[in-house]
Design a protein around this nucleic acid. Structure first.
Lengths: 144, 144
DNA sequence: GCCATATTGTTGATATATCAACGGTAAACC
DNA sequence: GGTTTACCGTTGATATATCAACAATATGGC
């Protein structure tokens, strides 16, 4: 009858914890490999890398961020010269692409990312992974 | 052989998305109910409420936050007079408790929280919930 | 008891999240 | 074609995340 559970027994608390553990683990691996980047900056680079052509709004939607956050993260990536911003046909928007340095960076980062993913799911069977995906998607569908 | 998947196919991306959807949905429900609080502030209040006696470090560990974040969140909750900070036996630390207003606030918030949890898991069977918990715990164990 | 070391909490600096307001541009409408 | 409306990105304000440095206090070894 929907009691007032202790925090540790709440499913959503476990999701929050899992997310934080993944992020912290990833950040430590990046840093110790000498890759001076945050997890959020990696997410932005990855999505640009996945896309032929992408604007800031599309990017924001794809990785669940606000337009304002994207502006600021891009400022840092531009400083690091990993990304270029070019005016597109629609002169309100920009087209984002990785520089050569950006692509090289992502190749190096992939070595780390690959290992994080592997280690994270090492104790899950294929079936468990599928079920996990499906259950998470159901939660999203219920709340979105 | 660990290919370079598209972001949308990565399990950890789905976990991040789920977490954000839950947080945003919760925040909207709080706001529209007139409860002027953030999800993180609620987490702090909830953990204090669950505990007989708790220090800031214990609190930080329990909800995966930094000592510095706890200090600043508590500053806001003190301003709102929802929490008290009293010197304990160890004079470096404080004992945190809810005020009467804090307890009343949490009762109101529970109406919202209960509904969020219910709606979030409405399409999951008990068994699916259990499997979800177990899989998430396995990921945590692998990376922590 | 004294000293070296560890712990608790605070503060500053930087990165990110969110909301609201704004300027510039495009699209829709008439 | 001019006006209204919608959209894209930026900026400011506030909240949170993380790291490092610091003051106050506690603890352990001697």
């Amino acid at each position: 009858m929907a009691k007032n559970q202790k925090l540790e027994d709440v499913l959503f608390y476990l999701i929050e914890k899992t997310n934080k553990v993944i992020r912290r683990y990833s950040q430590v691996r990046f840093s110790e490999a000498g890759l001076e980047i945050t997890v959020d900056q990696w997410l932005v680079l990855k999505k640009i890398s996945d896309s032929e052509r992408i604007t800031q709004i599309e990017l924001a939607n794809a990785i669940f961020k606000d337009r304002a956050s994207i502006t600021r993260i891009l400022d840092l990536l531009l400083e690091k010269k990993l990304v270029t911003k070019e005016a597109g046909a629609d002169r309100r928007a920009y087209e984002l692409t990785l520089t050569a340095a950006g692509e090289k960076f992502m190749e190096q980062a992939f070595m780390i990312v690959k290992n994080v993913r592997k280690k994270g799911i090492e104790s899950l069977t294929e079936k468990e992974q599928d079920q996990l995906r499906q259950s998470l998607q159901k939660i999203i569908n219920s709340l979105e």
